[in-house]
Nucleic acid binder design. Structure first.
Length: 511
RNA sequence: GGGCCAGUAGCUCAGUCGGUAGAGCAGCGGCCUUUUAAGCCGUUGGUCGGAGGUUCGAAUCCUCCCUGGCUCACCA
C-alpha cells in the first residue's frame, strides 16, 4: 500500500501539467517572487464592491482570491478572481503595473491565489472591475483546475464543461466547492439550519450538552453498531447509534432541557437517504409529553425554513410543500386504513400476517406483529406523506423506549414527522417507569436471542438511572441531514454531506 | 445482494459495419493595451477502467473483475 502511494506520487511528479507549473514556480523565483508568501491585507470582498459600485467607483481597494478565468493579451489582460462571496473582474495593464509585474502575471494560471490592489471602475462593456496597480501572488497551484465556463444568454446561464462526475465531486469535494458554487451554497445553508436550530433551542432555555460517542453498551435505536476496541482498558467499545439513553440520564440528573447535535454511526447499507455516519439533533424536555413535542417540531421546522428559504412553503424535487403549522396529525392505524382499507387496530399477529400477505408483504421474513405493521406502513403510507404529517401512536412492540399510551396499553405515545415521503424524526413521551422499561428491554433481548441482531441491548446502568427517578419527559430526534436535504432541495444525502462515505480510492500501481 | 446504465486527453464529450484515436476547452509557442465561453495561427498530450478470449486486426464483439451512478431489496 505504501509503495503504491510512493509510486503514485512519482507518477504525479512526472505529470506534464504539474511539471510545467513547477517550472513556472522556478521562473517566478528568478523574478524575485515568493510563490507562497505569508500574508495579504484585504480591504474588501468582491461582493462589497459589486453591490456598492456607486459608492466604490474610483476608490482604491485590495482584494484577494483565486483566479477562475484568464484572458491574457499582449499588453493588457483580464481575469476573474473568486473570493468567498463571489467573483470580480480585474484588469491588468502593462502600462499600469510595469514590465516585470506583467511578466509575473503572465506566469499565472487558473487556480492560483492572488491579491490585487487597484481602483474600482466599469469597463466599456459595463462590467464592474478593478484596474490593477499592484499584484501579489499568494499561492501557486500545481494541479490544473477543471475549467468551468459560463455564458449568459437571454438571461439564462449556460455552463460549459461543468465538473460533473459525481464520484470525483464527492471524493475531491475541495474541487467541487471551487468550481460549483451551488455546492458551496448548500453547505452554507446547512450551517445556517443548524445554527438557527441551536439558537431556537437555546432561546427556550435548553442546555446543549455532549455525551459519549464511544459507548460500552449501545442503545437508543434499532441498528447494528460499529465495533472498536480500547487498548488500555482492553474492552470492546461501540460507536454510538444514538445518544438517547445518555440524554435521559441527564434528565435524571436534574437538567430540565438538554439537547445535542450528535454524529451517530450505523453499520448498515448506504443509499440516497443513508450514510454510515449522520447527524441527529436530540432534545429532552421535562414535564412535557409528545403533544408538546409535536407543537415544538412544527414551529421549529417552519421557523427554520422561513429563515433559510424566506418562506414556510418550499419546493422539494418538484413538490410544493407547505410547512406552516399546524401539520396534519394522524394515528398510524388510521393512516394505514386510509391507504389500504385494512383496519389493523386491535388485531392479533396471525390476522396481521394474513393481511400482510394480501398486501404483498414478505411476512415470512418479519418476526413480529409490530414489524409487519411497520412494513405495511412503509410500503403504503410513507410515500404518500408529501405534506408535513405527524404519524402518531405506534405499536408498543417496535417502541421499547416510549411510554404506553394513556388510553391504550398496546400503543405508545410516539410520533414521527414526515416530509416529502421521508421520516425526518422520531419522538415520544419518554418511558420513565423503570419496571416497565426493564420488561421492554427483556422482550428485546428475547428477540435478540431469537436472531434479531438489531433488537436493543439491555442497559443496566440506564435502568439504574431510571430507578433513581426520571420525571415525565418528552423526547425528540431530528435527522439533520434529511432536514437539510429537504430545505436545500437536494436529492441525495451525499449532496448535504461534505465528505460522504466512499469506498477507498483505487491507487494506480504498475504491477 | 439483484437489475439497468456508465468508465475514451486535466475537464466536457464524439468515435460509423471490428481496420490500431478525435473535437472543444485547459496546457505549450506566437500575435493581440477594454476582454468576458476573448479571438486568430501553430502545437503537446491517450496502456480507450483492468485481465483474459474471439479475430489477420478490438475503444468497438464475448467472459470475468474493478469503480461509480440510478434503482429494488436490506436497513428505522
Amino acid at each position: 500500500m505504501k509503495e503504491k502511494h510512493v509510486e503514485q506520487a512519482r507518477q504525479e511528479e512526472l505529470n506534464e501539467l504539474v511539471k510545467i507549473r513547477r517550472q513556472k514556480i522556478d521562473e517566478l523565483k528568478k523574478l524575485g517572487v515568493n510563490p507562497y508568501p505569508y500574508k495579504f491585507k484585504c480591504t474588501h470582498f468582491s461582493k462589497d464592491i459589486i453591490e456598492n459600485f456607486d459608492r466604490m467607483e474610483g476608490k482604491a481597494v485590495s482584494i484577494a482570491g483565486r483566479i477562475m478565468a484568464l484572458r491574457k493579451m499582449g499588453k493588457a489582460s483580464f481575469a476573474h478572481v473568486m473570493d468567498s462571496g463571489g467573483r470580480i473582474q480585474i484588469y491588468v495593464r502593462l502600462n499600469n503595473v510595469g514590465e516585470v509585474p506583467y511578466k509575473i502575471f503572465k506566469l499565472l494560471d487558473i487556480g492560483d491565489w492572488i491579491g490585487v490592489t487597484g481602483d474600482v471602475f466599469k469597463t466599456h462593456t459595463g462590467e464592474i472591475s478593478i484596474v490593477v496597480k499592484e499584484l501579489t501572488l499568494l499561492s501557486k497551484t500545481l494541479r490544473p483546475l477543471p475549467i468551468v465556463k459560463e455564458k449568459v444568454e437571454d438571461g439564462k446561464k449556460i455552463i460549459y464543461d461543468q465538473f460533473a462526475d459525481k464520484e470525483l465531486r464527492y471524493r475531491q469535494r475541495y474541487v467541487d466547492l471551487i468550481v460549483n458554487p451551488e455546492v458551496r451554497d448548500v453547505f452554507v445553508r446547512r450551517s445556517k439550519i443548524i445554527s438557527t436550530m441551536r439558537r431556537y433551542l437555546e432561546e427556550k432555555g435548553y442546555l446543549e450538552v455532549e455525551t459519549p460517542i464511544l459507548q460500552p453498551v449501545y442503545g437508543g435505536a434499532f441498528a447494528r453498531p460499529f465495533v472498536t476496541h480500547h487498548n488500555t482498558l482492553d474492552m470492546t467499545l461501540y460507536l454510538r447509534i444514538s445518544n438517547e439513553l445518555y440524554l435521559k440520564r441527564l434528565i435524571v440528573g436534574g437538567f430540565d432541557g438538554v439537547f445535542e447535535f450528535a454524529k451517530d454511526f450505523r453499520n448498515e447499507g448506504m443509499d440516497r437517504f443513508h450514510n454510515p455516519e449522520f447527524t441527529q439533533m436530540e432534545l429532552y424536555v421535562v414535564y412535557e409529553d409528545y403533544y408538546f413535542m409535536m407543537n415544538l417540531v412544527e414551529e421549529m421546522i417552519s421557523t427554520i425554513a422561513e429563515k433559510i428559504t424566506g418562506s414556510k412553503t418550499i419546493v422539494y424535487q418538484g413538490n410544493e410543500i407547505d410547512l406552516t403549522p399546524p401539520w396534519k396529525r394522524i394515528r398510524m392505524f388510521d393512516a394505514i386504513e386510509e391507504e389500504t382499507g385494512f383496519n389493523l387496530y386491535g388485531t392479533i399477529e396471525n390476522e396481521v400476517r394474513e393481511i400482510g400477505k394480501k398486501l404483498d408483504i414478505d411476512v415470512e421474513a418479519l418476526p413480529t406483529r409490530g414489524k409487519i405493521i411497520d412494513e405495511i406502513f412503509g410500503k403504503y403510507v410513507e410515500p404518500k406523506l408529501i405534506q408535513p404529517t405527524f404519524i402518531t401512536d405506534f405499536p408498543i412492540e417496535i417502541s421499547p423506549l416510549a411510554k404506553k399510551h394513556r388510553d391504550d396499553p398496546n400503543l405508545v405515545e410516539r410520533f414521527e414527522p414526515y416530509i416529502a415521503g421521508k421520516e425526518i424524526g422520531n419522538a415520544f413521551s419518554e418511558l420513565n417507569d423503570p419496571i416497565d422499561q426493564r420488561q421492554r428491554f427483556e422482550a428485546q433481548m428475547k428477540l435478540r436471542s431469537a436472531g434479531d441482531d438489531e433488537a436493543q441491548v439491555l442497559d443496566e446502568d440506564f435502568l439504574r438511572a431510571l430507578e433513581y427517578g426520571m420525571p415525565p419527559t418528552a423526547g425528540l430526534g431530528i435527522g439533520i441531514d434529511r432536514l437539510v436535504m429537504i430545505l436545500t432541495d437536494s436529492p441525495s444525502i451525499r449532496d448535504v454531506l461534505l465528505f460522504p462515505q466512499m469506498r477507498p480510492e483505487q491507487l494506480k500501481a504498475e504491477d
